[in-house]
Structure formats: structure tokens, C-alpha cells
Amino acid sequence: MKKVLGFITIFLFVLSSLSFSAAQGVTGKKVLILKNVDAWNFDTNEVVLTELGVSYDVMTADQLNSLTTSDLINTYDMILIASDQNQQFYDDLGPQMLKLEEFVKAGKVLQVHAANWGWHGGLWTTSLPGGVSITRGYSNYDYIVKNGSWLYSNYASHGYLINVPADAEIVTVQGDGTTPDYTKPSTIIYSLGRGRVLVSGLTFEYSVRYGGPEWKAFLKELIVDNLEYSKKKEEKPEAVQKSFNYVIWNFFYYRQYQKATERFNLLYSSPEAGELDNETLELALFHKTLAEQYYAKAEENGPIFRNLNSIKVFINLRKAYFYVRDAVGVLEESMG
């Protein structure tokens, strides 16, 4: 009985802490896709964003001229530039790079699929924000540095990046399927002002269609991570640290994660789940997988109950709960 009362006390404390604003996964985020044509004739980016439940607009480089920097900042959380555009696109976009830089510096995210030399024949005419450029160089294999796995496709990447900022995170590099070539980074992430830029020479739009399910999963992970980054900057963690006790919050999110996980397992194994389409199940599992990944990060320094006062545990455990909650929401909504 004491344990129950203790948890109720903690729960009421959590509800009464008005200074805290919980993240809602990628709910409410909005992306602007810039393209003149479908990269390799596929609308891959739109398909992935739709599966993630993320709202988006599509605009040509010429139409972008009608928007000011303030328009972009007030409307979008991320701008995604598609690969393989015609030359008119790159010619129209080049003079507007400063506007995109200001968008990023304000705390937003720019995701550049920089693979050109494609079916539509366009070539980048300017450097990317921060002076980064892409050099032509085809590779059928690209190595994901974070987890040590390989991506394979018929031309997995069309180039590697040069003038890489010293503090950039190297996400993928080209290679031969056995040995990574760290001198040829094909995907990087770097800070610019209060925001960040992701640039990649990977053929996402083509390879998601033909390269295997790992391509779509990887693209989804990058997009979700970028949208979460935008949210993270808005939330100002330093202010959160002063407003509440991490022990209480970590205990709360641990209990909520466990309850949501039990709910997910119950729903996923139910007869009703067998009647759902594959797309719905894949979306639910995608959110569940992200939840498990963040939970694993929360336990990197040992069991959670030994580190309840850790801000690192708080950041990752909180995300783990929100993603498993999103997974449950997908199933519950589909089941009616």
C-alpha cells in the first residue's frame, strides 16, 4: 500500500509542475520539401514523411523566392532539399542559400540530399551552408559509422563531402563493403548558429525504392532525429534542470515506459493486430524500435535505478517513453 501511495504522490507532483512542457515526438512538426522534379522519378521523401505522420509542403526553388526568412522560420521546423534535380533548380536555389543559412541559425534544421549527377542532369552551382561541397565519386557501399553496418545499392552514393567542419559528426562514409574509407564522408551533420545542417551524397530517393528496407529505416531515423533536434533547442534543457528533481522525473518516466510497453505488447499480440495492414504495423514497430534505442541509451551507464539523478538518463528515458506511447497510439487508433 505504501508503494502505491508513493507513486500517486510522485504522479501528482509531476502533474503540478507547470514549468515542464513534454515533447510530443514529431507531432506538430512541419517540413518544407524543395524540389522541381521527383528525384529519380520517385516521391520518396513525401512517402516517408507521410508514414511518420509529419506534415509537409512541397515547393520549387523558384517558388521559394516568394518566402522571406521570417516566413520560413515561422512556418517550418525543417527544410529538406531533394536529390537529383534539374539544372534550373540548382540555378534558382544558389542565390537563396543565405536565406537558408539564416533559417538554420535561428534554431531550425536543413537536410540536404546532395546527390546530383543523376537522371535529371543538374549540378550544384554553389557551396552548401558553412562552405561544405560535394565531390563526384560513386560508391555501391556506404558505411554507417554509428552502428558499424553497411548500406548497399546500385550507386549507394554519388559523391563524398569536402570542406567538412572540424566539429562535424561523420554519419556515413564510402567504402568497398569491407573497409570504410574515412577520407570520403558521404553524410555529415554540423552545427550552424542555433541549428544544424545534415548533408548527404547518398541516393536516398532511389535506394529507398530499390536498396532494401534498411534504407527507409535509416532515412526515417535521420528525419526523426532532426525534428527532435529542433524541439530540443526550443525546450532549453538548462531551464528544465533548475525547475525539478531528476530523481522524481526519471522514476515517473520509467514507470510510464514500462506501462506503455506492456500495453503495446498486449495490443500487438492481439487478434485485432492481425487484421491491420503492413504499413500500420511497420509504423508502430518503427516507433517501438526508436523507444528501445533511447531506453538502451538511458542504460548505457548502468541500470536506471542506479542513475535516477542523471540528466542523460532523463533525456533518453523521456524520449523512450514518448516513442513507445506513439507506437501504442498507432495501434489504438487503427484498431478503433
Rank of each mutant, 00 (worst) to 15 (best):
T203C: 14
E102C: 08
F42T: 10
G121W: 05
V109M: 15
F314Y: 15
E169H: 10
T178P: 04
A115L: 08
E51N: 04
V328E: 05
H113L: 13
A217C: 04
R263H: 15
L151N: 11
G159F: 03
E214S: 13
L276H: 01
F20E: 06
Q24T: 12
E221F: 08
L12T: 05
P271H: 11
T125L: 09
L52I: 01
L227P: 10
T203P: 02
D38Q: 04
I188T: 04
R209I: 13
K288P: 07
Y206I: 00
Y246P: 15
T135L: 09
K297A: 14
E221A: 06
M1A: 08
K220Q: 10
S334V: 05
E101M: 11
E299G: 07
Q241S: 02
E46C: 08
D92S: 15
G53F: 11
A156L: 08
R325Q: 09
Y190H: 11
T75P: 06
G118F: 15
I10E: 07
K108T: 10
G195K: 10
I311M: 07
L80F: 11
K35I: 11
F252I: 08
V4I: 13
F305G: 02
P165M: 08
L317W: 05
Q258I: 03
D142M: 13
K146L: 13
F286C: 01
V132F: 04
